[in-house]
Amino acid sequence: MAVLSLKNVCFSYGKTPVLQDVSYDFEKGKMYCIVGKSGAGKTTLLSILSGLAEASSGSIMYNDKDIKKIDKYKFRSKYIGVIFQSYNLLTKFTALENVVLSMEIAGVKKIKKAEKALELLESVGLDEDEANRRVLKLSGGQQQRVAIARALSYDAEIILADEPTGNLDADTQREIMEIFRSLAESGKCVILVSHSAEVASMCDECYELKRIIQKNIKRK
C-alpha cells in the first residue's frame, strides 16, 4: 500500500508551469529515485511532498489521507524527514544543537537526546569535535551530513532527500547510501533526488521528471 501518493499534481510558479499531471506512488520499505534535468522541478516536487508548497491542483495522499487535512507542521516535524538541497541548517547553532532541536520540535520523548544525536552524527561520519562545532565552520559535505542526521533524528516514516550526496566523495556517498538502504529495509519510505546514475542504480524504483510540455512517463 502506498504511504504517499500523488494524483494528477500540477504546480506553477505564477504563470510558469513546473509540474503537470504528476502521479506517483511511494510505498513503505522501498527506496525511490527521482531523476530529471536541472530545472525539471525535482526540488519543487519535494517541496510539495513535504507540505512546504501547495499543489495548484491534484492531491497528495498520506496513508490515504489528503495532507491538506493534516496539520502541516506536525506532518513536517514528525512524519517526514527532509534533507534540503541547500541544507537549511541553523547557522548559529552547532551540528549537535541542530539535530537536538529537530528532535525537540518533533516532540521526541527521549531523555538523552544529545546522546542519540551524537550517535546519528557519528553514523554519518562526523566526530564529536565536529558535532560540537557551529554549522558555519563545517565544510559543505559535513553540513550535508548534518542535514541527513537531522532528517533521521525523529524516526520519520518518510525520508525526502534532495541531492543528499551531491557534495560527498564516492566513499562517503556509499556509506550514506548504506544508511538509506538499511532505513528502507527497516520499513521506511526513502525518496531521493539525484543526478547520479550510481545513486539511481541503487534504488528500487526510478521516476523521471521531464521538463514541461513533454508528458511524464513512468519508467520501470
Binding site: 507542521y73 529537530s102 520540535i105
Partner: peptide, 13 residues
Amino acid sequence: KYEIGVLTAMGMK
C-alpha cells in the same frame, strides 16, 4: 528571516 524559514520548515509552528 532565514532562521525563521529554517525553523518553520523543520515543522516549528
